[in-house]
Amino acid sequence: MKVAIINYGMGNLGSVRRAFEDLGAETIIASTPDDLLKVDKIVLPGVGAFTQGMARLSAEGWVPALHNAVINRKTPILGICLGMQMLATQGYEGGQTEGLGFIPGEIQKLDNLGCKLRLPHVGWNEVYYPSVGEIFACINSATDFYFVHSYAFVPDSEEYIRAIVNYGTEIVAAIQKSHIFGCQFHPEKSSKAGRQLLKNFLNY
């Protein structure tokens, strides 16, 4: 099993790589779009702002390569945090920006969604699953995962929602549209529960 972790200059990839290697996967830190041609799974990590993230993906040629891999060749992808958000149609962090458009929806700031609590939402929080999807196999609802974010995914349709978290309001914690997955929390920083989720993604 070969996993490409996309390196587009938005944060450290060491813990993501280490988590997949512990699970027995072969990892590639993908630095050029051609790296996506030879892998079974793609991980789009990321910490930072939507506009900057999309600008980096565009500038380095990742947008057509991801479209080709994920939409045409149906390679499963997991977006983590900003990586999840960039799967959306558009975002508003740092100005209105077009996303990858893999899952219809947009990215909104938590206080626009009714959250009155302090931002960013940082720390361990319980994630609830309306129903167990593939990605939460062997993980009980109300398991704690580690979050760091101020914006959230608002999908056009509730059918894409796989998990929610409560922080002053209900926030989408995980989404899925067929082989396209995203989680707002950081599985690579969520200890054993996170490892299980990454294992589920490998097994998908």
Partner: peptide, 11 residues
Amino acid sequence: VRKIFASNRGL
């Protein structure tokens, strides 16, 4: 407090 994770199968 955060609950210690116990997989309900697997891992």
